[in-house]
């Protein structure tokens, strides 16, 4: 059996699964016809759910039509509270990017230091263990209160949630570089700085990248929640705004897009990981 035929069959199964899912979705959300009789004057004031028994959940056709509408004009701007999906995603990605890069700048050097010093590693461990499991959103009120700026607070929340996996993985990667390599470097009288960059960094890189990949996933998860909380702009705000209007169709579209963007971010990091992986 060749790998191309396996891929083909896997693709077929994927398509069948998708079709089955859409079919069931469509059947489950069909309208049930008029539920109760009501005067036309009254019916005019009521929504379709009440008058025609239309399911509160949109069907795949509704979602598809709405999605097409969004895809056709992704960058419209109708004022501060209504912008196209492209702009909203741009805001979210910019926030995640900023918070994440700051976290990289802090976590990797810090992780290096901690990883190279067993003393620091032990001393800081209790703090890291306590801070790591805190839900990033729990920081939000504190951030809003102290930073006094909601967009910086959102970036701070991304920063704080993406720092821990990177920090821990860097510490672990640096600390578990094989002793023989370091000893060889030492025998060759390589200086500390050079040793860090030419021996430890390449050896620890796969572990560090894995940490970064976990972090970007978490950061993307958190931005949606953070934006729902703070509002203003971003895909999370879009979800909240459409929820406000009980527009489940738009919420489903947003969910879909959040998934796609999350996958893309993950794939980018996965590619970087492959670039630095080495066979032992």
């Amino acid at each position: 059996m060749t790998s191309s035929s396996l891929r083909l069959r896997a693709g077929l199964v994927s398509i069948v699964l998708l079709a089955a899912f859409l079919g069931i979705w469509h059947l489950a959300t069909r309208s049930t016809g008029a539920t109760t009789t009501m005067s036309p004057e009254y019916a005019k004031l009521m929504g379709l759910t009440a008058t025609q028994g239309k399911s509160a959940m949109p069907g795949p056709v509704d979602v598809g039509a709405k999605l097409w509408e969004h895809v056709r004009r992704p960058f419209y701007d109708n004022g501060p509270n209504d912008k196209g999906l492209g702009i909203q995603l741009g805001y979210s990605i910019a926030r995640v990017g900023t918070g994440y890069l700051l976290a990289v700048l802090v976590a990797i050097p810090l992780g290096f230091l901690i990883g190279m010093s067993p003393l620091l590693s032990k001393a800081l461990d209790p703090f890291i263990q306590v801070l790591k499991p805190i839900s990033p959103l729990a920081w939000m009120p504190l951030a809003l209160y102290t930073i006094k700026d909601s967009s910086i607070s959102a970036i701070f929340v991304i920063f704080i949630c993406s720092i821990w996996p990177m920090l821990l993985n860097t510490v672990f990667g640096v600390a578990s570089v094989r002793k023989e390599w370091i000893n060889v470097a030492r025998t060759l009288e390589v200086g500390t700085v050079r040793r860090a960059f030419t021996v430890i960094l390449p050896a620890a890189a796969p572990t560090i990248l894995t940490g970064m990949r976990i972090s970007i996933g978490i950061a993307w998860l958190v931005i949606v929640a953070a934006e729902m909380l703070v509002g203003g702009t971003g895909i999370g705000y879009f979800v909240w705004n459409e929820w406000n209007n009980l527009s489940i169709t738009n919420v489903i579209i947003a969910i879909l897009l959040i998934g796609v963007v999350g996958m893309l971010l993950d794939q980018i990091l996965a590619r970087f990981t492959r670039m630095v992986t080495f066979p032992e």
Partner: peptide, 8 residues
């Protein structure tokens, strides 16, 4: 409209 209350 969606820019303001966002309701029917």
């Amino acid at each position: 409209p969606a820019n303001y209350i966002n309701a029917p």
